[in-house]
Nucleic acid binder design. Structure first.
Length: 589
DNA sequence: GTAGGGTTAG
């Protein structure tokens, strides 16, 4: 048995006088045992390994007659046996083994060994020190290059950013070639930590250090900037790099397009589209998803369907995202027949609906009062959600999943259950983010529990989740419904003071609030004000103001706005007509 | 190794 032989190799050779000849003999005995044992792991007792020391360990690891995998086995054996604590491999053993693994092209294993160095407080040291431990050989430069490159990645993975930068500095100083792909690993790690300043700064350093920049790292940084709402800066960066010969691709353009769409910047959207045309960058499914979102959010349903047709005609393969967005917009205008036919089409193509798809459908069937159907869809979604979690093995549902389920329940007006899901999430130790808090606040508002909603707003500020425009919109809507206009205006001032501009949702709630409060003139003032600010009223906004005017007996004005709405290319729905008809009734009586 | 996630209004 291998273990027995290994023990013998220590006991046979008695070390009376520490001498390299004896060490070599012990090392060679260990090597022989390891070769015989193959890949089989082995165990031993601590007392019998008392002759072991770092020189012997090194001799074994350096033994070229020993396959690297056997070295690794021995190394891990020494590392993980608690009784061999004093014989754990030293820094030199780590470096030597890492280099041997590199020679053997065992990169994943090499990375693992470097990870031990980086995460062990007793082994961590400067890059200069580490490099000095790399043995001389014919391929030394190449070896050091690869060693540094991988170390850089390992530091990034462990979020040891300062150490990673030191490696980068060293590589630059030593004129070692720096791989852009490793830099991307670093950039992604920074982005995950929301450290965009460092991310942007590092990208500049990459340029200065003459790292070969491709569209991948460029797009990554552009995305980071767009998320921070620095779309202008992102676009300028694209321009700068274009001059240097780095051509943006469809992903780059999609990223910027998304940035402008989120900001509802018409000029920006058009500029990106014309640049895509100039560069002959063809739209892909993601581009269509974004454009459908853009047209849908401005109420142009016919354009949504036109785009979808265009996509299929051009042979761009539809995916679940683009289907979901077309389904979602059909649901929003109450065209459930079309929505379900799209679902059939989607499943026929072998695509699987996701939580958004379900969310859109639930929203749609609730609108037409089919609560039974909504229940079924929710159940279906929950079970699929569980499956999705099972697939990821060992992963708990994340804040996204909890929110999706809670919002599904909200649409069914099952507020208590929705809240329970979110509180369960908090109990399980997940930190609620802005969206979770906003959903909770929205639920409270819908339940009419305004005090609780207000308390949650303060609570989220304390917990460091910064309320956004959606949060304020939910509260403004809640207070509007209760005709508490004084608080409504206070909330509007507060959101503006925090640097958030009222958007279409805010104005629609304000207009609706003033209308039900009986101040239609005030509502009209707001309606004009929003247009002056460049905000585009949508069907909901028009319905609110048309309904207010109608109920006030001002049918002429209501019809005038209806025409205006059609002219703007908006698709009217049931509720607009109801408001107008209600107005005629009021006028006659 | 880069893009389209979950929250708001009639």
């Amino acid at each position: 048995m291998a273990t027995q032989k290994l023990i013998q190799s220590f006991t046979k050779t008695r070390i009376t006088n520490p001498n390299s000849v004896y060490y070599k003999q012990i090392a060679s005995n260990i090597s022989k045992t390891l070769i015989k044992s193959g890949l089989e792991p082995f165990k031993t007792t601590p007392s019998l390994l008392s002759n072991l020391n770092s020189s012997i360990t090194r001799l074994v690891i350096e033994d070229t007659s020993l396959p690297p995998q056997s070295c690794l086995n021995f190394f891990n054996f020494l590392r993980t046996s608690p009784s061999l604590f004093s014989h754990r491999p030293d820094l030199q053993a780590h470096v030597t083994l890492a280099c041997r693994l590199y020679d053997a092209r065992k990169f994943a294993e090499m990375k693992n060994v470097l990870n031990f160095i980086v995460t062990d407080a007793n082994l961590r040291c400067s890059i200069e020190n580490l490099v000095s431990l790399v043995e001389n050989g014919s391929q030394k430069l190449k070896l050091v290059e690869k060693f540094c490159d991988m170390l850089f990645r390992v530091y990034a993975d462990n979020r040891l950013f300062t150490d990673a930068i030191r490696v980068f500095d060293y590589m630059e100083k030593s004129l070692l070639k720096i791989d852009e792909r490793s830099c991307i690993v670093f950039l992604i790690a920074l982005k995950k930590c929301d450290n965009m300043d460092m991310c942007f700064g590092f990208f500049q350093r990459m340029i200065d250090a003459d790292v070969e920049i491709t569209v991948y790292s460029l797009t990554l940084v552009i995305n980071g900037l767009c998320r921070r709402e620095e779309v202008k800066r992102a676009k300028d960066l694209m321009g700068e790099m274009f001059v240097k010969g780095i051509k943006p691709n469809v992903v780059t353009y999609n990223t910027l397009l998304n940035g402008y769409i989120k900001r509802k910047d018409i000029g920006g959207v058009n500029e990106m589209l014309s640049l895509m045309e100039r560069d002959e960058v063809a739209y892909n499914a993601a581009t269509y998803t974004l454009l459908i979102e853009w047209y849908g959010s401005t109420g142009r349903m016919s354009e949504v369907e036109k785009l979808f047709d265009e996509m299929l005609e051009r042979g761009v393969e539809a995916d679940v995202h683009v289907y979901t967005s077309v389904i979602s917009w059909n649901c929003r205008v109450g065209n459930m027949k079309r929505a379900f036919s799209l679902i059939d089409e989607l499943t026929e193509k072998g695509l699987v609906p996701n939580s958004h798809t379900y969310g859109a459908l639930i929203d749609g069937v609730c609108k037409i009062g089919e609560m039974g159907a909504a229940e079924m869809l929710l159940k279906d979604m929950q079970s699929r959600g569980v499956n999705a979690i099972m697939e990821k093995k060992g992963f708990e549902p994340d804040v996204f999943t909890y929110n999706t389920i809670a919002s599904g329940l909200c649409k069914l007006k099952r507020y208590a259950e929705a809240k329970r899901w979110l509180f369960t999430m908090i109990e399980r130790g997940l930190a609620p983010n802005v969206v979770n808090f906003t959903t909770l606040i929205d639920i409270c508002c819908k339940e009419g529990k305004l005090e609780e909603a207000k308390w949650l707003l303060e609570e989220m500020k304390i917990k460091g989740a910064r309320p956004n425009a959606v949060t304020y919109n939910s509260l403004i809507h809640g207070y509007s419904n209760k005709k508490k206009m004084k608080e409504v205006h206070q909330l509007r001032s507060e959101m503006e003071a925090m640097g958030m501009m009222p958007d279409v949702y805010t104005y629609t709630s304000l207009i609706h609030g003033e209308c039900v409060f009986g101040k239609v003139d005030e509502a009209m003032k707001l309606f004009n004000e929003m247009k002056q600010k460049g905000l585009i009223p949508n069907v909901v906004t028009y319905t609110s103001i048309i309904s207010g005017l109608s109920k006030d007996g001002r049918s002429d004005e209501a019809f005038r706005l209806y025409d205006e709405m059609i002219e703007a290319g908006l698709t009217p729905d049931e509720r607009v007509f109801t408001s107008l008809v209600g107005g005629l009734h009021t006028a006659r009586s």
